Structures are given as C-alpha cells and as structure tokens.
Computed example of a mutant assay.
Amino acid sequence: MDSEKVVNMVPKMKMSKSFITFGLVIVLLVILALDAFVIVNAGQRGIVLQLGAVRPIVLTEGLHFKIPFVQSVVPMEVRVQKSQSEQTAASKDLQIVTTTVAVNFHLDPIQVNKLYQNVGLSYGERIVDPAIGEAVKAITAQYTAEELISKRSEVSAKIKETLASKLATYYMVLDEINITEFKFSQEFNNAIEQKQIAEQQALKANLDLQRIEIEAKQKVEQAKAEAESLRLQKQEVTPELVQLREIEAKIKAIEKWDGKLPNVTGGAVPFIDVNSGQ
C-alpha cells in the first residue's frame, strides 16, 4: 500500500517541478524583456556602458534596445543649466572686486559620452565653477575698478569669450553670461562718493563763474547803451530845444500857481511875465 502511494506521488512531484521550472522561465523572460529596453526622456541623452566601458554611441530621446545584464544606460541632461557664483578678484588698480556671475550653459548632445568618460556627472564642481572663477579673475585684472563699472558690457563680452573657450574643451557650450553685481570695498565706495561730490562742486563753481561772467558782460553792454544814448541826446540839443524847455517849465509853474503872493516879507515879489507866453 505504501509503495503504491510512492509510485503515485512521483508523477505529481515531476509535474510540480515542471510547473516551477516553467514559472521561473517565464519570470526570467519577463525580466530579460524589461531589461532589454530603455527609455531616454526629453532633454536627455543616454550614455551606453557595456560591462563598465563607455560605448562610442549616444542614445537620443525615445525607446532603445540594449543587451540585458551586459549594457546599462546613464542619462545625462542636455538642457540649458545655470550656475551662479560670487568670484573675488583684484582689478588693474589693485582694488578687491567681488563679482556675481550667472552662467547659462548646456552639454554638447553629440559628445556627452566623452564628457562622462573624462569627467563624470560632477562636471559642475570639477569644470564649470573653476572655469568661471579663472575667467573672471583673468579679465578683471585687465581693467581698473572704475572701468569695470563704465565698461560693463565689454567686460562681460570678454569673460564670455574666455569662458566659452574653456568649456568647449570639455564638450560644453556656453549660452549666456550675466554680471549681476560688482561689489567693492567700503574704502573704495567712500572714495567714489567723495569724487562725485567734488565733481558736483566743481561743476557748480564753473556754472557760477559762467553766470558771473555773463552778468558782467550784460552790465558792460548796458553801460555802453546808456553812454551811447546820452551821446546821441547831446548831439540833438539845439538853442531852439533849450528855449522850448524853458517855456514848458514856465507854463508848468503858472499852472501850479494859485494866484496868491507869498506871505514872507523882506523879499522881492516874483515877477511873472505873462506876455512872454504870447
């Protein structure tokens, strides 16, 4: 009886093992199928590693096939990235300048595999930030502190040119650079303020001097005009004009007289020749 049970159990055990084996095969196939495909998202590129070695191909956006368990894909961002930092440097006149710089850059989509192979994923700390600092210091040293302010666009253009060359060595492209702020020492700021005050005072003094000169010229011209007027009047005086002025004066005196003689005695009574007006 026991032997019969054992005989009956053998086929069942074989079936169970076959079912388990079939299940394992299915699971393995599913895993292989899932690991055989990779999706590269928008704005990224895929770096293909085959047993740890970087392959000379770059996967673009979309679905791609890879060898399961042999190849792996590392995604890398190729969109525009931003790096902002403060860089302290010395100007041409040895003033300490702290420059706030904002840099926009992106990785070269075609050669990101070389960047990954030579630098890795920490390219910002290893390459971008040091390159920004070196470019800012190199260009800042070519200008005085005042020129850094007055020639800001020119300084920015030179920093951009220098930084673009450095980043291109590591397969990165510089898009834009913006100098958001220049900071100087308090002593330099005070010196600039005093210089502006002196320039304003000098300008005011110059304007006052010009005003005084203009007023003096106006007075001279006015005196010349008055002298010329008197000269012309003097030329026009004739005996007939003198006699006319005397007659006009006598007429005004008669018009003002009220017909009464003065009450003061001891003096001569004024005589008015009425017929002389006829």
Results as ranks from 00 to 15, higher is better:
residue 1 M to C: 11
residue 6 V to Q: 15
residue 12 K to N: 08
residue 13 M to Y: 09
residue 16 S to Q: 11
residue 16 S to E: 08
residue 17 K to L: 12
residue 25 V to K: 04
residue 27 V to I: 15
residue 29 L to M: 10
residue 30 V to Q: 03
residue 31 I to Q: 03
residue 35 D to M: 00
residue 35 D to H: 00
residue 36 A to L: 00
residue 38 V to W: 02
residue 38 V to T: 02
residue 42 A to L: 09
residue 44 Q to S: 04
residue 47 I to Y: 06
residue 48 V to N: 01
residue 49 L to D: 04
residue 51 L to M: 12
residue 53 A to F: 15
residue 56 P to G: 09
residue 58 V to L: 05
residue 60 T to G: 15
residue 60 T to R: 11
residue 63 L to K: 01
residue 63 L to A: 07
residue 68 P to W: 02
residue 68 P to S: 03
residue 70 V to I: 06
residue 73 V to M: 00
residue 77 E to F: 15
residue 78 V to Y: 02
residue 79 R to E: 12
residue 84 Q to H: 10
residue 87 Q to V: 14
residue 89 A to N: 08
residue 94 L to P: 13
residue 95 Q to V: 07
residue 96 I to D: 09
residue 97 V to Y: 13
residue 99 T to N: 09
residue 101 V to M: 05
residue 102 A to G: 12
residue 104 N to T: 00
residue 106 H to P: 02
residue 114 K to R: 14
residue 117 Q to R: 02
residue 118 N to W: 14
residue 118 N to I: 10
residue 122 S to E: 15
residue 123 Y to G: 09
residue 124 G to C: 14
residue 125 E to T: 11
residue 129 D to I: 10
residue 131 A to T: 04
residue 133 G to I: 08
residue 137 K to F: 01
residue 141 A to E: 14
residue 147 E to I: 03
residue 149 I to E: 13
residue 149 I to Y: 13
residue 149 I to A: 12
residue 152 R to C: 11
residue 153 S to W: 13
residue 156 S to C: 07
residue 158 K to Q: 11
residue 159 I to A: 00
residue 164 A to F: 02
residue 165 S to A: 15
residue 165 S to L: 13
residue 165 S to G: 12
residue 167 L to C: 06
residue 176 E to A: 12
residue 181 E to G: 14
residue 182 F to Q: 01
residue 185 S to G: 09
residue 193 E to H: 10
residue 198 A to L: 11
residue 201 Q to E: 12
residue 201 Q to R: 14
residue 202 A to T: 02
residue 205 A to G: 05
residue 208 D to T: 03
residue 210 Q to Y: 01
residue 213 E to P: 06
residue 214 I to E: 15
residue 217 K to L: 10
residue 218 Q to A: 03
residue 222 Q to T: 09
residue 225 A to N: 06
residue 225 A to L: 12
residue 233 Q to Y: 15
residue 236 E to W: 13
residue 241 L to H: 08
residue 244 L to Y: 01
residue 250 K to I: 10
residue 260 K to H: 14
residue 265 T to G: 03
